[in-house]
């Protein structure tokens, strides 16, 4: 696929609030990107020129924010609405290998959709959620830089351009980001994730060691910050790569002012994947 052909949709409903910088991140790499309201996919109240189909796009992003006010649970209402109107399309989209990204609230939506951990390639959306993003152990809204170690061996299409073991800084901003697997099956889940190369980012301290709070901002099991599905094309993470797209967004940017921000490689990776698609 040529660069100019690539089309990215950043989904929004009431309460999403990171769609603009996410769209901007993609656009500044030369692809077409737009924020699309969920209603544009199904409502007959929408003008013809604004109606969209999921298959008008090659990449779907669930952005950060507080969709539907985080009512019920973070991401639950966005997920319920996607399920009611787009379930079949989204399953086909994922099965065909098109990439889907969920950042922060978007990760919560993917977890509620049953898209992550996504162990079953033939059934990309599980009937019921298989993980939860629970309230941070600190019971606080954690809003600050975090260090992440890239752990993926190459399955995740969103981090292919980041070498394994590299430590990056992406900021977090969430109150519900603690990865929880079903009780009593945690070890089993972790083994499967490791075996399938589905673990993408883990929280570390400034030296790169796995460490507890405050380095792990939410108390996530195994310091997990982001995982992908078994196919590698659905990726969810709590930290915000779009908030460190440019170097000047890093607190210590003057140390290396000409280099790209740490988050840029996430967007570059998926574009490279689509160019070979």
């Amino acid at each position: 696929m040529e660069l100019e052909e690539i089309r990215v949709a950043v989904l929004r409903i009431e309460g999403t609030n990171c769609e603009d910088e996410t769209v901007k991140a993609f656009r500044s790499l030369g692809v077409y990107a737009e924020a699309v309201h969920l209603k544009q996919f199904y409502s007959d109240m929408i003008k013809d020129e604004e109606q969209r189909s999921l298959f008008d796009f090659h990449c779907i992003v669930f952005p950060g924010g507080f969709s539907a006010g985080d009512y019920v649970r973070a991401g639950a209402i966005f997920s319920a609405r996607v399920k009611s109107v787009l379930k079949r399309d989204l399953e086909e989209f994922i099965r065909e290998g098109y990439p889907v990204l969920g950042i922060c609230n978007g990760f919560q939506v993917l977890a509620e959709l049953g898209a992550l951990p996504g162990f079953d390639e033939d059934k990309p959306l599980a009937d019921k959620p298989e993980m939860a993003l629970g309230i941070n152990e600190s019971n606080r809204f954690e809003c600050r830089p975090t260090f992440l170690r890239h752990e993926n061996d190459g399955k995740c299409v969103f981090t292919k351009k980041i070498e394994k073991g590299k430590i990056v800084m992406f900021p977090v901003a969430h109150a519900e980001g603690r990865v929880i697997f079903p009780r009593g099956r945690e070890e089993d889940y972790l083994e499967r994730l490791k075996e399938n190369d589905q673990i993408v980012f883990r929280y570390v301290d400034e030296r790169g060691n796995y460490a507890g709070y405050p380095w792990n901002p939410n108390g996530s099991i195994y310091n997990i910050a982001g995982i992908c599905n078994v196919k590698g094309n659905v990726f969810g993470l709590m930290p915000h790569p779009e908030r460190v797209f440019w170097r000047y967004q890093h607190p210590n940017w003057l140390e290396n002012p000409e280099s790209p921000g740490d988050g840029r490689a996430v967007f570059e990776s998926v574009i490279e994947y689509l160019r070979k698609f």
Binding site: V72, I77, A80, E112, E130, M131, A132, I180, F181
Partner: peptide
């Protein structure tokens, strides 16, 4: 409850 109100994991 199963479709929206509760997440059976927690």
């Amino acid at each position: 409850c199963e479709k929206l109100l509760a997440n059976p994991v927690i």
